[in-house]
Amino acid sequence: MSEMTKKMQEIAREILVKGEAEVVIGWEKGTFWYLSPPAFIDKPEDVQRLVWDDFCHNNLSKYLVDLKNHEGKAAVFVKGCDSRAFNRLLQDKQIAREKVVLIGIPCPGLLDQDKAKELGKNSDLPKAQKCLDCQYPNPLVYDYYLGDKEALNEVAATKEAADYSDVAAIEAMSPDERYDFWTKQYDRCIRCYACRNVCPACSCRECVFDQTRVGWIGKANNSSENQFFALTRAMHVAGRCIECGECERACPMDIPIMLLNKKLVKDINELFGEYDAGIDIEGKLPLGHFDKNDPEEFM
């Protein structure tokens, strides 16, 4: 058992015994060695299920949206990305700060599940792409901290500055090439909405894509409807996406969803000044305010 797993179980037990929260949301070992799905712990005797390893991918802040109307308190383990998601949900008034106990974990970056499956246990596994792009591996907000308190920000960011070279590669294509590229990607979308449902930025009580009766989106699976879904979702999470990359990991069809989201992050930064979602909860939201001196292009 790793040192961090031990610390996790200890703090979870303490929180449950003291009654600081009714439930602790963490990760546990799944069906295979490279899966560490979310776990909900209600009883102190169950804390030994909790683990911390290289595959704790799920962004647990997403589950706080489920507990919005819940009376009691929940304790949640947060990596850097989970904490950004928490902040962003807080800004959208989706959760109440006082109803959540946050336990911060410095995250050294997680490993690629697909590669783990392919290469096997005793191989040198690469980090997940989302973690290679990560600028905020340390939790930004917490009530308890499981790392070394003396050395805050103990994990160095894998990326000092954001890297948009993958986005730039697509921007460099001709319009028709870009259209063909995205059509190919989204033609294989099965519209299972795993990307939406795993996404901590998607917190609408009723989603537009669940309103086929109203006619917002057609039920048919075809290029046009799939692209409608992709583009609308990208716009809806613009300014909310905290780049945890969960959408792309969850996608059963391996669609590079983050390439869309990163494009919007990049443009927001270029157009409206530096902004990373979920970093500064006092900061203004890029699509929630405006500046009279915003770029004036076509208007």
């Binding site: 986005v167 697509i170 921007e171 319009p175 028709d176 090439e177 870009r178 259209y179 063909d180 590229f181 995205w182 692209q227 992709a230 583009l231 990208a234 716009m235 613009a238 869309l260 494009k263 919007l264 443009d267 927001i268 157009l271 409206f272 890029p286 699509l287 405006f290 915003d294 770029p295 004036e296 292009e297 076509f298 208007m299």
Partner: peptide
């Protein structure tokens, strides 16, 4: 204006002229 600036770029990014 803000939304349009983003949307315009996103549409271009997926190949709309």
């Amino acid at each position: 204006r803000r939304r349009y600036l983003l949307m315009q770029r996103l549409l271009q990014y997926v190949g709309v002229d």
